[in-house]
Nucleic acid binder design. Structure first.
Lengths: 139, 139
DNA sequence: TTTTAAATGCAAATGATTTGCATTTGAAGT
DNA sequence: ACTTCAAATGCAAATCATTTGCATTTAAAA
C-alpha cells in the first residue's frame, strides 16, 4: 500500500512527506473521483490530519505531473482521480453524484483523425456520461 | 435575429425582457461557448447594459430548461452555449482557450448500451477534446 | 549533525457565482 | 390606455471553493 505512494513521490522528484503520502493513499483507496474536501475528510476519519491547503497543493502538483486528473463538476467542485492506471471515464448520477467508472473509451481511435482534420495537436480529452443511477431512478 | 430570442422566451414561458433577449442574442451570434463575463462584456460593446447577476440568472434559467449547456472549464469559469440546434462537442486549445466545434458525436450510438449495462437512465453527456491549436503549436 | 531549500499550517485574500432586498417592468385583466 | 402584481432587475453584500503570503517545520543532501 505505502509502496505506490512512495513510488509516485519518487517519480515526481519531490519531498516524500507524510501529508502527500496520505493524500495519495486516499486516492488509491477509491474507485471514484474525490473532491479536495472529500480527501480532507477521509484523512480526518483515519485519525490523521492534513491541512486543506496542503491537499490542494498536493493535488495540483500531481495534476501538473499528469498523475492525477482534475475535473470540475457541475456542482462547482473539482474531483480528482489517480491516472496511474490509465485514464477512465465515468457514468455520473445527476441526483446523488455517485460515479461509476466505465471500462472503455470511445475516443481512443478518433483522436488522431480529429487532430489532423483540425490541425490541432491533441493532448487529451474529458468525457462524462450523465444519468440516474439504479437507486435514484426509483425516486 | 430577434425572432429566435422571442421564440425561446415564449417557449420557456417567462417574461420577455430586454436583458434576456440581449443575452440570447449574444449567444446566438457566436459559435463558441462563452463565459458569463464574456457575454456581459459583449453586451457592453453593443452599447447596452445588463447587470452581471442578470446574465447569470438568465443563463441558469435557460440551463434548467435545457436550452443552454453549461460546462465548467479548467480555468474555473463556466462556459455557456445555446443547445437550440442540438448539442455539440468542442476541440479546446489548452493554451489560448480557443474552441472549435466538432461536427459529430461518438457517444450517440453508445449511450443506450452503456445505460443498459449499468442500469442507469442516461440523460446526457459531456465531451471535450484538448490540444494545441494551429497558432499555439508554433509557440 | 548541520544546513537549506522545499513543504506545511494558518489566516487572510481571491474570484466566480449567488443572494437579499428595494425598485422596476411585462403582461393580464379592466 | 390604465391598473395591478408577480416576476425580473440592479445593486451591494454574501458565499464558497480555491489560492496565496508568510512564519515555522521538515526531508534529505552534504
Amino acid at each position: 500500500m505505502k509502496r505506490l505512494a512512495d513510488d509516485i513521490l519518487a517519480k515526481i522528484g519531490c519531498k516524500n512527506t507524510k501529508p502527500r503520502k496520505t493524500v495519495i493513499e486516499v486516492l488509491e483507496s477509491t474507485d471514484n473521483p474525490l473532491s479536495a474536501e472529500d480527501i480532507f475528510l477521509r484523512i480526518k476519519e483515519l485519525g490523521e490530519s492534513v491541512n486543506l491547503s496542503t491537499v490542494y497543493r498536493t493535488l495540483d502538483l500531481m495534476e501538473n505531473k499528469s498523475l492525477v486528473s482534475k475535473t470540475v463538476m457541475s456542482d462547482g467542485k473539482a474531483r480528482y482521480e489517480l491516472t496511474v492506471d490509465g485514464h477512465r471515464h465515468h457514468l455520473v448520477c445527476t441526483n446523488c453524484h455517485k460515479s461509476v467508472p466505465i471500462d472503455f473509451c470511445p475516443l481512443e481511435k478518433l483522436e488522431k483523425d480529429i487532430g489532423e482534420k483540425n490541425d490541432f495537436d491533441i493532448t487529451g480529452h474529458k468525457l462524462e456520461i450523465y444519468g440516474l443511477c439504479p437507486k435514484c431512478k426509483k425516486e
